[in-house]
């Protein structure tokens, strides 16, 4: 895969199970070595022994499993990692308090993590990934297995981080989440099959469709539309014409004019917008589609 994630960008990494998302994250976090290829994070080369420590210093990782020390308190968990990330004592205290307050867990800081709910644990794991103010954050399925309320809290927190202009690499199966949070999205299925902003992916991968609601469809109207070169494909459902067009902004007035000339009575003209799920499913089912 060839991929560039800009500073301050939130990049979503989508793909089916076993597509290679977690492996890619682990390689970028210098946890496993790559078999070939090259990658850089903040100017440091991934896989280069002398750069590995510098990369680990500048990244924060939220793995798929939170991996907290359940018998220890939330404060202690964060304090251990802050020390491992070489934070000064004042920064340690300040960041632990800041993140625990932001996540609404300051009052429960001395409770054993084992007594926390899944959502609370996930929040602590996110705080742990942020404790040293990393410039790059890797989040591997941050809302997986969370109830809707906890997932929303975590999502809102990621949006807060986005406002702070942190570079975030987000692996997720949640397409709605990806669409709402990410600036760009990459779809992987053992190789990178598409990259772009959610809107550009929808535009590029999915043909744009215009839906024209008519009072009645007849052969004359259909013939008039079929003769138009701007229309790639026509489907009819009841009194609706569903037309594949490349450029609706330019082509729709031509189509409307032809239908009216053919005696058609137009009630509505709308655009059929694909969801990111439509685009994603098409991509993973037909990997050759670019």
């Amino acid at each position: 895969m060839t991929l560039n994630v800009d500073e301050g960008e939130v990049f979503g990494f989508l793909g089916p199970n076993a597509a290679g998302k977690t492996t890619t994250v682990r390689m970028l976090c210098c946890l496993i070595s790559k078999t070939s290829g090259r990658a850089w994070i903040g100017g440091y080369e991934v896989g280069k022994r002398e750069d590995s420590l510098n990369i680990r210093k500048m990244i924060g990782l939220l793995p798929e499993n939170v991996g907290l020390y359940e018998s220890l308190s939330a404060y202690k968990n964060l304090d251990i990692y802050a020390r491992l990330y070489e934070c000064s004592e004042s920064k340690r205290r300040e960041n632990i308090e800041r993140f625990l307050r932001m996540l609404g867990l300051w009052e429960k800081r001395e409770y054993s993590v084992g007594t926390y709910s899944k959502g609370m644990k996930q929040k602590i794991a996110i705080a742990r990934a942020l404790i040293h103010d990393p410039t790059v954050l890797f989040l591997d399925e941050p809302t997986a297995n969370l109830d809707p309320e906890s997932a929303k809290t975590v999502r809102d927190f990621i949006l807060e981080l986005k406002k702070e202009k942190r570079t975030i690499f987000l692996c997720t199966h949640n397409l709605d989440e990806a669409e709402r949070i990410c600036d760009r999205i990459g779809v992987i299925k053992t190789k990178l099959i598409a990259v772009g902003s959610p809107s550009s992916l929808k535009r590029d991968i999915w043909e744009r469709k215009t839906i024209i609601h008519l009072h009645q469809i007849n052969a004359k109207i259909l013939g008039a539309v079929e003769r138009l070169s701007v229309v790639k494909n026509i489907r009819t459902i009841d009194n609706k014409l569903i037309l594949d067009v490349n450029n609706p902004e330019k082509d729709n007035p031509i189509i409307v004019s032809e239908i009216v000339s053919a005696g058609g009575e137009i009630q509505f003209v709308t655009e059929l917008r694909p969801t990111l799920e439509d685009v994603y499913l098409r991509l993973v089912r037909e990997p050759e589609t670019k």
């Binding site: 946890l31 990244i59 990782l61 939170v66 991996g67 020390y69 990692y81 491992l84 742990r128």
Partner: peptide, 12 residues
């Protein structure tokens, strides 16, 4: 406890 991955990701 599945805590190895975050531990190994630290600059140690």
């Amino acid at each position: 406890e599945k805590s190895l991955e975050p531990l190994l990701a630290t600059p140690t």
